[in-house]
C-alpha cells in the first residue's frame, strides 16, 4: 500500500537524536532513519527492539560444536578406527583431548559465518542488491528521517523544521514493511 511520507534531513547526529524524541513525543510515526555511521542511542530513541543476533550466534556455535563431535566420532571411531602411533581409537572420550582444537574451531566457524549470513538475510544485504537510501548524502554526512504523513502537511513540515531539519520534502512510500 502506498502512502505519503515526509523526509527530513538533519546535518548533526545530536540534533537528529533530539528530533527523534520530539517527533515521537508529538505522536508521529517514524518509519525509518538513515545515518552515515552508528549513532549511539538511536535505536533506543526510536523504540527499536534489541537485536537477537547474539543469541542466534550462540545457537549456531552449539550446532557447530555438536556437528564436530558427531563428525569426528563417525570418522575416527565408528567408520574407520585406526591405531595411530600406538593410540588406538576405541572410544570418543579417550581420544577427546586430541579432538578439542577442531571442536573449538568448528564452534567458531559455525557461529561466525551463520550469524553473519543471518545478519545479511535479515537486513537484506547481499551482492547485486540495490541500495535503498533515498538520498546519497546519507552515507556521507547527512541524517535522514522518514515520517508517516498523517493530518496536515504544512503542520508536520514546519514542526520538523523546528526540530532542526535543514531540508524537508514529501515523497511516496511504495514498500510496505
Amino acid at each position: 500500500m502506498s502512502h505519503k511520507i515526509v523526509r527530513a534531513i538533519y546535518d548533526d547526529d545530536d540534533v537528529l537524536l533530539k528530533a527523534v524524541k520530539e517527533v515521537r513525543d508529538n505522536g508521529n510515526h517514524i518509519e525509518e532513519v538513515f545515518t552515515p555511521f552508528p549513532v549511539h542511542g538511536l535505536d533506543k530513541a526510536m523504540g527499536l527492539a534489541p537485536t537477537k543476533l547474539a543469541i542466534t550466534a550462540f545457537i549456531y556455535g552449539l550446532i557447530g560444536l555438536f556437528f564436530s563431535v558427531w563428525m569426528m566420532n563417525y570418522m575416527m571411531i565408528q567408520d574407520w578406527p585406526q591405531n595411530i602411533g600406538g593410540k588406538p581409537s576405541f572410544a570418543y572420550y579417550q581420544n577427546m583431548p586430541a579432538f578439542v582444537p577442531i571442536m573449538f574451531e568448528m564452534t567458531v566457524f559455525f557461529a561466525a559465518h551463520l550469524m553473519v549470513i543471518t545478519f545479511y538475510m535479515r537486513s537484506k544485504i547481499w551482492p547485486f542488491q540495490t541500495a535503498s537510501n533515498p538520498d546519497p548524502r546519507t552515507t556521507d554526512d547527512k541524517f535522514l528521517m522518514e515520517v508517516t504523513l498523517e493530518g496536515n502537511e504544512d503542520d508536520l513540515t514546519s514542526f520538523l523544521t523546528k526540530t532542526g531539519a535543514t531540508e524537508v520534502s514529501i515523497a511516496e512510500n511504495h514498500d510496505n514493511h
Binding site: 525509518e32 532513519v33 538513515f34 545515518t35 552515515p36 555511521f37 552508528p38 549513532v39 538511536l42 535505536d43 526510536m46 527499536l48 534489541p50 537485536t51 543476533l53 545478519f119 545479511y120 535479515r122 537486513s123 537484506k124 544485504i125 547481499w126 551482492p127 547485486f128 542488491q129 540495490t130 541500495a131 535503498s132 537510501n133 546519507t138 552515507t139
Partner: peptide
C-alpha cells in the same frame, strides 16, 4: 551489497 544505513541495520 546494497548497504543503506538504516537504524536497524546499524544496530545489527
Amino acid at each position: 551489497f546494497g548497504w543503506s544505513g538504516r537504524a536497524k541495520d546499524w544496530q545489527r
